[in-house]
Structure formats: structure tokens, C-alpha cells
Amino acid sequence: MVRADDAASWHGGSGRPRLHVVTGKGGTGKTTVAAALALALAGAGQRALLCEVEERQGISQVLDVAPLGDLEQPVTAGLDGGEVIGLSAQAGTALVEYLRLFYKLGRAGDLLRKMGAIDFATTIAPGVRDVLLGGKIYEASRRTRGGRHTRPGAAGSADPHEYDAIVLDAPPTGRVGRFLNVTEHLADLARVGPIRAQADSISELLHSPATAVHLVTLLEQMPVQETADALTELTGTGLHPGAVIVNQVRATEAAAPLALLREDGQPDPEVLTDQLASVGIRPGPATVRGLLQTGREALDRWELEQALHTEVEAMGRPVLSLPHLPEGIGPDAVLRLAWALRDQGVAP
């Protein structure tokens, strides 16, 4: 097992990445985990950018803030008093910015957007959409607090980066490979020119040690299998997998039904009856049978989770565990998860 027990190892690399891509099967809570990770990485006097690219407003929901737009804005504080900035990257806005930058279209880009041409272009060429969204992340990663941009491969700027960490709430594992391999999927669309050059720059960032791709899973068969498949795909394309984050882990009390089993592994009605009687409860036979059935199902679930956790550990990545929070998801829950990440070695 590879444990995530110190700040140098939790992301699974020798360096310290600045861009943290968070993906996972739909329904595993990757947006909530991404938000908690941003809080954990926003150290004292530091700024973390928390960005989504699917326009679902997932970040605003879990943090209970106003819907995010395409302008960066503060959304919450980090664990150490740092600042978390939110952004909902939108392909249409990114394309208008791209046209202004490379083709000097100015307000003509806004006119094209009003006419629907922007949506049309990003729909028929989804590879372009991914490049545009990736370009927003790339630009934020290069920007310094002095307003300049660092050049790829250049020596460090005298100014610190605008963001000490960037957390990207990425598409689910079924689509994240295409999203991250922007150059490959643009091969037949743009072999040369500014958009190909931008795709190559984005690809260089995403395939560098500055980027770690973390996978969120539940202890359920389909998410664990999809996580294993995604790790294979990421490694095969030269990306850098980080930690596997197991979300909604139940407390060890889930194994309590073990005390109700006989030596042959079957539930013992007498044991349960005696335990209930000791606290003044005297159920009938039907109630005892129902309770034992519920206990058996809980035990089966617990045994399955233990087996799946062993599979996750065998994937060879650092493993982080986040607790199941029965009270639901909101700012307080995100804060608790951020502290759980910090306790396991996630540090700014």
C-alpha cells in the first residue's frame, strides 16, 4: 500500500504540483472533493483558484455562494486564512478572448457570440472547446501577481504566481482523457496555426510534473473499476496520476453486526434478543428476524467495502480517505473534508 502520510508523497510525485485536476465517476462527489482540496491548499497569505469547466455551477452549490461567472471572484477562505477564488470557465467567453488576442476582432467577437456562431463552432468542434477551456487554466497558471505571464520553460519570475495552487473540477473519468489530451484530439482539425500552438502549450503544462490528476471514488464496484481504468489511461498518455481519494467512507461502527454472528457465520437470534433485553427492549420473533436481516445486509456491505478498499490500495497510488457525512454537503461539510485532507498530509 502507498500511503498519503506526508506533504511530499500525497500527490504521488517527486515535485510539488501547482495544478490539481480532480476527476471521478459521476456521483462520487468530485466537485465537493475539489472544493475541499482548494481549501486545504490555500495557506496563509496564499491564493488558490477553484475552477469548473462544465458550467454546472457545482462549486457555487457546495459552497453556497452566488453562481460563478467567467470572472474570477473570491468564494471562501482557506484553512489557514488564505483565499479561494472561484471561476466557471465558459467556452464561449474563452473563444471571444481568443479571437481578440490572435485575430484582433474586438467587439466583432461579441457580435459573433450574440449570433450564435460561438456555440455553433464549439459544438461542431469539441476539441476546440477543450482547448479554449484548457487555455483559461493555462493562462491562470502563468499569470503573476505583477500582472505579467511567465513563459513556458523560462526561469522563475521575480513576481510570485497569481495563484499558489489551482484546483480544476474536471469532467468525469469517462471524458477526462479526451479533455486532457487536447493536442491528440486536435490533430485532424488544426495541424498548424495559433490554436494548434496554444493546444501544444496547454498539453505541455498538463503532461508536466506541475500537474497531478487525482481520482475520486466510492467503495462501490463500478466507481472502483472506472478509477482503475482511468489510471491505466492516464499513465498510458503520459499524464501524472496523483492520489486516489476514497470519498464517503463509513465509520468502523459499520462492522457492529459482527458481534451478532455465531461461529458458523450465521446470525444468532438469541444474542440479539439478550442484547435488546439488557436495555429494556423485548421484541417479538418477527422484529428479531427483521433486525438480523438488516444486520446481515450491513455486514455484507461492510465486507464488500473492505475488499474494494484493498483493490484501491493495490492501484499503487497514494490513498486519501474522506468520511461519510450524513448531514449532507454544504460549506461546513466542505470545511470538515478539507481538515480531513490536511490531517492526511495535504498541505499548501
Rank of each mutant, 00 (worst) to 15 (best):
Q306M: 06
T252G: 12
E297S: 04
A187R: 13
V271L: 09
P223I: 06
P223T: 10
G265Q: 05
L258A: 08
R262G: 05
A307V: 11
T227D: 04
W302A: 14
V182E: 12
V192H: 13
L215I: 11
V192W: 07
R191I: 00
P269Y: 02
P267S: 02
H185D: 15
Q275D: 10
P285A: 07
T235H: 14
T287A: 13
P223K: 08
Q266R: 13
P267Y: 03
E220A: 05
R178T: 00
L292T: 04
D200Y: 02
L180A: 04
E270W: 02
G236I: 03
L308N: 07
P283E: 10
T227H: 07
P209S: 00
T252A: 12
L304E: 14
S201H: 03
G284C: 10
N247S: 06
S208C: 00
M222E: 15
V249G: 11
L215N: 13
E270P: 03
W302I: 13
V244I: 12
A298I: 05
A199M: 06
A243G: 14
L258R: 03
Q275Y: 08
L189G: 14
R262P: 01
L205P: 03
E263H: 03
A286Q: 05
I281A: 08
E305Y: 11
A254L: 09
R282Y: 10
L186R: 12
E303N: 13
I195T: 15
Q293K: 10
P194W: 09
L231T: 09
T287V: 15
A199K: 13
V279G: 15
D200I: 06
A256D: 07
N181E: 11
T211R: 03
L304A: 10
P283G: 05
E270G: 02
T287G: 14
R289P: 11
L291P: 14
A307N: 02
I195Q: 11
V192G: 14
T287Y: 03
A187V: 13
G280D: 04
L215G: 04
L186P: 15
M222T: 09
L292R: 02
H214W: 00
T273F: 08
L258T: 09
E226D: 09
T252Y: 00
G280A: 14
L189V: 09
G193F: 05
P285S: 11
L272E: 07
L215M: 04
L218F: 10
Q293V: 12
V192R: 14
P283D: 06
T211P: 01
